[in-house]
Amino acid sequence: MSQKILVTGAAGFVGAHVAAELARAGHRVTGVDNYNAYYEPRLKHDRVAALLGPLGVPCQVLDLCDAAATRALLADGGFDAVIHLAAQAGVRHSIKAPGDYIQSNLVGFGNVLEACREAGVPHLLYASSSSVYGSRADAPFRETDRVDRPASLYAATKIANELMAHTYASIHGLRSTGLRFFTVYGPWGRPDMAYFSFSRRIRAGQPITLFAEGQLLRDFTYIDDIVDAVIGLLHAPATVDKPTESDIYNLGHHVPVKVVDFVRTLEDALGLKAQIEFGPMQAGDVPVTCADDGRLRARIGDWACTSLADGLGRFARWIEAWEPAPGA
């Protein structure tokens, strides 16, 4: 059945892919984004033009920190669900610019919650992060694990989002679903992510730096797999005895890979060798991310699982088309 769905952050990496797939499935999708300059806005506009434009999905400019505008959008929209993917991303940037995270991830999220409550939105899905698990080596991570030791302000804001959503569910009956994303990668990705910046430097013949001697473990998750899980959770019916529940799910495959091995696969995808330099662990980084996806599979069944070689191959083909190397 067709639904009317609002996707915030629809010019972003995950948001654009989710909005496009919903539109392809016949849903009536509205997107909003503030198109900020955390990374080049050109990429955001290109995403919208390539992924959303052909499907007729609008992506209007809106800053969710504007409470009145956010309330007006929700009050007038008649949305069956809100998928809130807008946020200030980036672990390291949160050390340099904490105010960006307080505004976007706390004030903005609070405005979305309140607007959903006032408008009577039946279901809010929102982006959390594997960063909530903090700096720990025991894996896999489960949704029932403690998450009160964040390693960055970014992670702290995501933990706060989960608590805020739980409060609105328990007090106001706003059903919410938190999405703990694990290192999402793929075409149209974010330039601040390591695989994207590595690719740019490798293709330019410049060295790359692997922190913690390249031994960090990451549960890389391909964008199409993430979209499959998000839409599965959107369509999952509310639990009969908890129709206004607040639940949280890991969106990762329980297949952590050493960053140095990830780079070797990226080299194969690009057909180029990297000049690798090693550096120490960086502030805010964590040694491992690894999802237990048992709760997710129990809720939506088996979900897509793209191999790293296939996913990076698709990314390599995309970046070579979007940003041809000099002289190509």
Rank of each mutant, 00 (worst) to 15 (best):
A23D: 13
G56M: 04
A137Q: 06
S129L: 08
L266E: 01
V18S: 05
A160V: 00
Y133W: 05
L272N: 07
L85D: 12
G232Y: 02
A23M: 09
Q206W: 07
A49F: 02
A97H: 12
P187A: 10
V227G: 13
A69S: 14
G173A: 04
P256V: 07
A119L: 03
A169Y: 05
R200L: 14
A321T: 13
L216T: 13
I159P: 01
H27A: 10
L234M: 03
I95E: 11
S197I: 02
C59V: 14
A137E: 11
R203Q: 15
N161H: 05
D76G: 12
R28C: 10
T177L: 03
A165I: 00
A238Y: 01
I319S: 14
P191R: 08
A69L: 07
V32H: 00
P256M: 08
L163M: 09
T289W: 09
K4F: 02
V107E: 12
G205Q: 13
V147Y: 03
G178Y: 03
A274F: 00
E245Q: 08
F262I: 00
L163R: 11
N105T: 06
I319N: 13
E323K: 15
R203A: 12
A291M: 01
G78Y: 06
A23T: 11
V29T: 08
I248W: 04
S152M: 00
R264L: 08
V240I: 11
R203F: 05
K258M: 13
Y154C: 04
V227D: 12
F220T: 00
S130P: 09
E245I: 03
D192T: 09
Q60R: 14
D302A: 12
G26K: 10
I300R: 06
S199H: 03
W303G: 08
D261K: 08
L85P: 08
S94L: 02
F196A: 15
A137I: 05
R28F: 03
L179H: 05
D225Y: 07
R314M: 12
K4E: 15
N250Y: 01
R117F: 03
